[in-house]
């Protein structure tokens, strides 16, 4: 039977459909992997990011496909709601990849409330801290829209949640 470490290494290949540079491990939505030796089943526990996020179904499907490709046939993807997902679970390498991709990563911890007008989100393109929020809701549930006042480029901010 396949090891837990192996399963995690396969999960590294499954990316977030909306932010393809991030694996679901970078995103921090994989909570645990249970291996049942008896009936040779692998259960993967996943926390949804946002309630209505349409990416969740696709992620579950991609997880199953990846496991199948790797020869793991009996896979169950279980959704767990509590504790609720938070951007604090995103890995440091995930945040770096996001920034390189052109999306500003979450700037604060989810339990510290910073009013939006006080939050400084550096521009992922020119690193300037002189940026302003255009819209708190962006192209997907997890993002807000910002504009850089120096290089004038608009950019997405992966908001703290």
């Amino acid at each position: 039977m396949v090891s837990k470490e192996k399963i995690y290494s396969y999960l590294e290949n499954v990316s977030d459909p909306e932010v393809p540079v991030l694996s679901i491990l970078d995103l921090g939505i994989v909570r645990d992997v249970n291996i049942n030796e008896e009936n040779e089943t692998v259960e993967i526990l996943i926390t949804p990011t946002y309630s209505g996020c349409p990416a969740m179904q696709m992620i579950a499907m991609n997880v199953k496909m990846e496991m199948l490709t790797q020869g793991v046939k009996n896979v169950i993807v279980t959704e767990i709601l509590s504790p609720a997902w938070t951007t604090d679970w995103m890995t440091e390498s995930g945040k770096r990849k996001l920034n390189e991709y052109g999306i500003a990563p979450p700037q604060n911890k989810s339990n510290e409330y910073i009013p939006i007008e006080d939050l400084i989100v550096p521009c992922p393109i020119c690193q300037s801290k002189n940026t302003s929020v255009i819209s708190e809701f962006g192209s997907t549930a997890c993002k807000s829209l910002y504009r850089c006042n120096d290089c004038l480029e608009p950019f997405d901010y992966f908001k703290c949640h």
Partner: peptide, 11 residues
């Protein structure tokens, strides 16, 4: 976005 959150909660 807000509609989606509500429909997600309903689901």
């Amino acid at each position: 976005n807000i509609a989606l959150d509500n429909i997600g909660a309903a689901r």
